[in-house]
């Protein structure tokens, strides 16, 4: 048998495979594994890590100081997800009920702000919210308030910033599932004497569950990582998981601990995705059974 020549190995097929496999392995798989390894190493002030096994970082995760940050970060992200859902659901619903030829342009209008730098938009919020900013100037000019409202550098500002940045990520999946919803079902339910609340909880909500879950994941996870939003809008008081990871890496130089937090965040993501796919599967099979 002939040895395969170079021209045989360098086929188009092999090049395509090699390119994507190499890139994914080198820049996605290897770095992910490295973080997992670093998280169980010992800290070293000079070279960042020493090759000695230690569960120190994971033990530190249970420290009340950090538990408090986790709790707070969760609360921020959960509240942001809820707010996005409350604002986004009626929006997506109305959008899905608009005339077909208007839907595409209206949807494009939701996406356009997302194409501009979110940092720039966060900065625009500062102009609006600050003590001598637009809201306060107008309210004072109208004589509604005497002293400026303190909005910037509070939790309210952080929520406004997070919802503002992440709202499109909630609207898009919600719209996708509401648009597919067959409204004859809603009409049928009304004809059979269902009350509006029943129609909502029994028909609209279950049928849009995949969209709600997808949107919740798309908002919840980034909400914990967007360190620049609390940094700029909340002053130094508020801390997200993202701020913690960033500070552990860049300020404290504690790589193992920063990695441990990041592993934790990755696990959380995988958990949420597993729940999502399981629910989707259950919905699909229950639909099949009913059909």
């Amino acid at each position: 048998m002939n040895k395969p020549g170079l021209s045989h190995i360098l086929t188009f097929r092999n090049t395509a495979i090699a390119l994507v496999v190499t890139w994914t392995l080198l820049f996605i798989v290897v770095p992910t594994l490295m973080i997992a390894v670093v998280s169980v190493l010992q800290r070293d002030a000079r070279t960042f890590v020493t090759p000695a096994f230690s569960l120190e970082s994971y033990m530190a995760l249970a420290d009340p100081v950090y538990l408090k940050i986790f709790g707070k970060s969760f609360a921020y992200a959960a509240m942001t997800t809820l707010l996005c859902l409350l604002v986004g659901f009626p929006f997506a619903f109305f959008l899905a009920r608009t005339r077909k030829r208007w839907q595409k342009p209206l949807l494009l209008l939701v996406i356009i702000p997302f194409w501009t730098s979110s940092l720039i938009r966060t900065y625009a919020l500062i102009i609006i919210l600050k003590a001598n900013g637009i809201i306060n100037t107008w309210l004072r000019a109208a004589g509604i308030i005497k002293l400026p409202l303190e909005i910037l550098y509070t939790d309210i500002a952080v929520y406004i910033g997070l919802v503002y940045t992440l709202l499109p990520f909630m609207i898009l999946p919600l719209y996708a599932s509401l648009e597919k919803l067959d409204f004859r079902l809603v009409e049928a339910a009304f004809d059979l004497g269902a009350r509006p609340v029943q129609v909502f909880t029994r028909i609209i909500l279950p049928l849009s569950l995949p969209g709600i879950m997808a949107g919740a994941i798309m908002v919840f996870l980034p909400a914990m990582g967007l360190f620049y939003v609390p940094d700029l809008l909340g002053g130094a008081k508020s801390m997200l998981l993202g701020n913690l990871i960033k500070n552990q890496f860049l300020v404290a130089g504690n790589w193992p601990f920063g990695s441990a937090v990041s592993v934790f965040l990755t696990m959380l993501m995988l958990g949420l995705m597993a729940i999502y796919f399981k629910t989707m599967k259950r919905i699909n099979t229950s639909v099949m059974e009913e059909a």
Binding site: F27, P31, I35, V38, L221, F227, G242, I245, F249, S259
Partner: peptide, 16 residues
């Protein structure tokens, strides 16, 4: 990777 938070990718790449 598409779903994972940016910050996780940022620190894993800087390690590499």
């Amino acid at each position: 990777t598409m779903m994972s938070p940016d910050i996780v990718m940022g620190i894993s790449l800087v390690c590499l």
